Amino acid sequence: MMITLRKLPLAVAVAAGVMSAQAMAVDFHGYARSGIGWTGSGGEQQCFQTTGAQSKYRLGNECETYAELKLGQEVWKEGDKSFYFDTNVAYSVAQQNDWEATDPAFREANVQGKNLIEWLPGSTIWAGKRFYQRHDVHMIDFYYWDISGPGAGLENIDVGFGKLSLAATRSSEAGGSSSFASNNIYDYTNETANDVFDVRLAQMEINPGGTLELGVDYGRANLRDNYRLVDGASKDGWLFTAEHTQSVLKGFNKFVVQYATDSMTSQGKGLSQGSGVAFDNEKFAYNINNNGHMLRILDHGAISMGDNWDMMYVGMYQDINWDNDNGTKWWTVGIRPMYKWTPIMSTVMEIGYDNVESQRTGDKNNQYKITLAQQWQAGDSIWSRPAIRVFATYAKWDEKWGYDYTGNADNNANFGKAVPADFNGGSFGRGDSDEWTFGAQMEIWW
């Protein structure tokens, strides 16, 4: 008995050590931004985005507190085989008060198993909700290839000249389909599951310092038995992507060409959309029709120009041509140079221009935006974070068209359509004006 009692403290210590080691193995990653800002004409900070554009130049032009908190852990490992559990909870508030209630979004919860298939060394099996191989332009917060959501897949299969990845994910639309009631009355209240099937071939070395990635995505509306879509709904579509990445000037340049059809055009990033119906009456549900095509040509990157200068840049042309004439032509160009006074202090400027032409009206909206920021960051790279910055932003815009969301679809035949700025004596778009804002912001990723 005495021997047992003497061994007990040692056993407890060993158990505590094991539990401590396991606790220390938890990975904590994430992203956050928050700050305070004012508008020159009075009131809180207002942000500037061109009507019809899918993004905006973000430096000194973000008006919310946003965070993603990721917890993950390698829960099992034997040799080169392992299982990893990953989670991500995100939230966004308007940064107007101390207490701002919000419903967090559970954006990731997945398990990734590496090297589980003997004859596919280096590959990963995964299932669950996941940010899946996302491609974006940081300076405009624009995701041009992103099929994230609940799904499953097999990735990084070594095929000799590259890595092959296969995945299936889902994005549902509210009110996407109906069941038959009586007297030809349909009640569009059932969600429609939109499935996306993704095939990618990446890391193909085609020139010194250059790699090529090719991808095909097929999206479709997956209806339940005895349900139907509204007439004209976009049932399926394709997205084709080619991306060349070149190492240059201690950074990279990415050149991207994408072509999409029908349900893959509205978001243009790989998620299927077009079966959703915002109104019970299918007579007024025309606005979900996105049959047509999209072409996107994009070049972006980040480079170092000597010891003291870094720069991000982007140039993009996007043409969404829809059968219902509600598409757009959008082109944007911008730069973000950074001058480093010390390894932790810099001055950053961002200059961006957007131009969006309405397919329906032929009119154009444009905006110039310039931001000057003094910044303190954890390192001497344009990617170094955390960063604390004080900024001043000036924007000038001239908008000739907007979307008509007055009333509702039952009493407005133009609901959701592009109209000229002065349509029917109204005021659509943001008109011709300018404004400036100033404030302070922190940004961090880890």
Rank of each mutant, 00 (worst) to 15 (best):
D422V: 12
G416C: 11
V12G: 04
F423I: 01
N291S: 13
E357V: 09
M305K: 01
V256L: 07
N308K: 02
G52S: 01
F255L: 11
W330C: 07
G60C: 11
D225G: 02
F284Y: 13
I36T: 05
M264R: 09
M305T: 00
G425S: 12
M345T: 04
G60D: 04
S172Y: 06
S182G: 08
A13T: 08
G276R: 10
V26D: 05
G122D: 11
V199L: 14
C63R: 13
F28Y: 07
I335V: 05
V12I: 06
T342P: 04
T265N: 07
G17R: 13
K235E: 08
Q367L: 15
A101D: 14
P150T: 13
V93I: 01
S433R: 14
Q258R: 00
F131L: 09
N408S: 06
S427R: 15
L8I: 12
T65P: 12
D299Y: 06
G416D: 04
M345I: 05
R228L: 08
C63F: 15
N365I: 07
E44D: 10
A16S: 03
D319V: 04
Q273K: 11
T87S: 08
N412Y: 02
P343L: 00
P9T: 09
E68K: 05
Q377H: 05
N156H: 13
N291I: 04
G292A: 03
V159L: 14
K400E: 12
G306D: 00
T192I: 04
R33H: 02
V277L: 07
I157F: 15
P9L: 12
L164F: 15
N190H: 07
T39P: 09
D136G: 14
G209C: 07
Y286F: 15
S182N: 00
W330S: 08
S247N: 01
D80V: 12
A413S: 10
N290T: 13
F415I: 07
A168S: 12
F279I: 07
F85L: 07
F48V: 12
M24T: 02
K417I: 03
N97K: 11
M2L: 09
A53T: 01
G362V: 06
T192N: 13
Y339N: 10
R389S: 05
E100D: 08
S34A: 14
A418S: 14
T265I: 00
S247R: 11
Y227C: 03
P208S: 02
P337T: 06
F48I: 14
A11S: 12
R107S: 12
N226S: 07
Y218C: 01
D262E: 02
R200H: 01
Q203L: 07
E78K: 10
N355S: 08
D217A: 04
N281T: 11
M24K: 04
Q359E: 05
N355K: 09
A221D: 06
K400T: 07
P150L: 06
A378T: 04
F240Y: 04
N289Y: 04
D422A: 15
Q203K: 13
L212S: 02
Q374H: 09
D262V: 00
F415C: 13
Q95R: 01
I351V: 02
N207D: 04
W38S: 14
Q258K: 06
Q267E: 15
E118K: 12
W99L: 12
E78D: 11
